[in-house]
Write a protein that binds this DNA or RNA. Structure first.
Length: 261
DNA sequence: CCCAAGTCCTGGTTGC
DNA sequence: TGCAACCAGGACTTGG
């Protein structure tokens, strides 16, 4: 998106807007050029040129997708939530579509910097500046299960349900363990595996269980590496025990009771 | 009927 | 006892 100019925008599902009105979006976005695109956790932030330090912030929720195709118009398709026409320096135009089956995605337009939500996030789980010491401080005293800790974006930003379960399998930790009971060695394993699993996910261009695709519509391949997620009732690849499933923090949680302690 | 890639809000609990 | 901080669970939404 960097260097492209917003020409037009259509809010098919304005209820997914945050921090601005539909009118703000139509009045402020067209004409602005994307200066740079950054990311913190699951939020994508496009910094815009012109007056007011405007930022367009995206969150894909569970089933959101950003798709890019040449040309096109603002005619919505099934599950189109926002449509944008973007212009290259040479005048060529692309259509950027924010699709989302379940409408859990969000689009923020803010003046004076990124959406306020971003300031409540912890450091980026994959690329951020944090270490085992940081985890140790954040885990201290908490009674919540470590799985809930991983999903809480104010600790580390970017870990979702699949990566949380996979991380815990690799770290040989039960998702039910209380945060305050983890020792130094276990916290070190956790820190290592968080970065390793997310790194593998990025290298494999994401996890496609049913919907996820990249900008050009291609699926990822992280799903081929899954050790516990979605494998309830199957054999653990490390110890042969049966993968079980519990509910933690309202989320389905798969783990191996044989080798995750 | 069950389950699902996420986050926000509410109300109850814990512990300093 | 007071009061944050903490934590679990429901709501939201569409589809397989």
């Amino acid at each position: 998106m960097t260097g492209l100019r917003f020409v037009a925008v259509k809010a098919v599902e304005p209820a997914m807007l945050r921090d601005c009105s539909e009118d703000d979006l139509h009045e402020q976005l067209p004409g602005r050029v994307v200066l740079e695109v950054t990311r913190l956790g699951k939020f994508i932030v496009a910094k815009l040129d012109g007056e007011g330090e405007y930022c367009l912030t995206l969150h894909l929720g569970m089933t959101g997708q950003i798709l890019l195709r040449p040309g096109g118009d603002l005619a919505p398709q099934r599950h189109s939530r926002f449509l944008f026409i973007l212009e290259h320096v040479d005048g060529r135009q692309d259509l950027m579509e924010f699709r989302d089956i379940r409408k859990f995605g969000r689009l923020h337009l803010t003046a004076g910097g990124p959406a306020p939500r971003l300031f409540a996030l912890g450091p980026d789980a994959w690329m951020g500046d944090w270490d085992a010491k940081y985890l140790e401080e954040r885990l201290r005293g908490r009674r919540a299960p470590v799985k809930a800790f991983l999903l809480d974006q104010s600790n580390l930003a970017g870990i979702g349900n699949i990566y949380a379960d996979e991380t815990l399998w690799w770290a040989e930790l039960s998702p039910l363990r209380e945060c305050r009971d983890l020792d130094r060695k276990e916290i070190r394993r956790l820190a290592t595996e968080i970065r390793a699993r997310l790194g593998e996910g990025v290298r494999r261009l994401g996890c496609t269980l049913s919907d996820f695709v990249d900008l050009q519509g291609r699926p990822g391949t992280f799903q081929a590496t899954l050790k516990v997620y979605g494998r309830r009732g199957e054999e653990c690849m490390r110890c042969g025990s049966t993968i079980t499933r519990v509910l933690i923090a309202g989320r389905g949680t798969s783990f191996c009771p044989g080798c995750q302690h």
